[in-house]
């Protein structure tokens, strides 16, 4: 898998169309845009004899939010779990093909899954805080990975993580209380804070808002948009509105296959595939 520029699937208008210069920053942005952070090549996943993901090719670009949509059971969660090898523990689950993170094969025999899961973090559908204090929920993983050598450093990590997850103001006076005592939306933001505390590069989210009210959902979506500046995010969502709101690109799955992947606006206004059209307009089933 090489990163030659010809693999860039962005068509940009030539800068000569504009009578101003595209800024350098933007330039870097665009260059960065072209090189995939993660890449799936011919990935198939079986649960015993059942094919759940069927020969998927997908690029995940840096600093993008990529939404995975598709009917229930089409393999979105399965593919997502492959991206940080969460499927390893599932009995009978067999992954074939190649998945790379910055060109490194994550299924290579010398790949250690613990650091992999630090680099590729995951937020689940149901908020699952540890039965510990809010502080410890965040501090646990950094402690495990030796990211802080002093108490002050750890305090700093906890505070910034909670800040970035938009939770600090709500919990700063009760850091010692149990994380499970927070509301659902707060718990989900706590889990996000926990995920970003170890400075991942890619964040995987599996229906992170399905248990949340519109305001908590809006807060998470705002957070996703901010996190995108530093991280790459892959989100599985059943809400097409949510996919349209938060993502730059959308991939549509059907029966384990990727039917279509493209710019979110394109997918939701004028998809190329009939199947996608039928799904997004609600003509399924």
């Amino acid at each position: 898998m090489q990163n030659d520029m010809s693999t860039i699937d962005l068509t940009l208008p030539s800068s000569s169309f504009f009578n101003f210069q595209i800024s350098r920053d933007r330039d870097n942005d665009l260059v960065a845009f072209g090189l995939p952070r993660m890449q799936c090549a011919n990935v198939s996943v079986y649960y015993d004899s059942k094919l759940a993901v069927d020969d998927v090719n997908l690029k995940i670009l840096p600093n993008e939010v990529l939404a995975l949509i598709g009917p229930s059971g089409c393999g979105k969660s399965t593919l997502l779990r492959c991206l940080n090898r969460m499927n390893d523990t599932i009995q009978g689950c067999k992954v074939s093909g190649k998945i790379t993170l910055d060109d490194q094969d994550i299924y290579a025999s010398d790949m250690d899954v613990v650091p992999l899961r630090v680099r590729v973090g995951m937020v689940f559908q149901k908020p699952n805080p540890f039965p510990k204090s809010i502080y410890d929920n965040i501090a646990m993983a950094p402690r495990l990975h030796g990211l802080a050598s002093t108490k002050a450093e750890m305090d700093e990590i906890v505070e910034t993580s909670l800040h970035r997850a938009g939770l600090w103001d709500e919990v700063k006076d009760r850091l010692k209380q149990a994380g499970t005592g927070l509301s659902g939306g707060q718990q989900q933001r706590l889990c996000i804070a926990r995920t970003i505390a170890v400075n991942p590069e890619v964040i995987l989210m599996d229906e992170p808002c399905s248990a949340l009210d519109p305001i908590a959902t809006a807060k998470i979506e705002q957070l996703i948009d901010e996190l995108r500046k530093e991280y790459t995010i892959v989100i599985v969502t059943h809400s097409m509105q949510q996919a349209a709101r938060v993502s730059q690109r959308t991939a549509f799955f059907h029966l384990g296959k990727i039917i279509e992947v493209g710019a979110t606006e394109k997918i939701f206004t004028n998809p190329s595939e009939e199947l996608t059209e039928r799904y997004i307009t609600g003509h399924f089933g």
Partner: peptide, 9 residues
């Protein structure tokens, strides 16, 4: 309905 695709168009 938040129309999409050809419905939106």
């Amino acid at each position: 309905r938040c129309p999409k695709g050809s419905d939106l168009r």
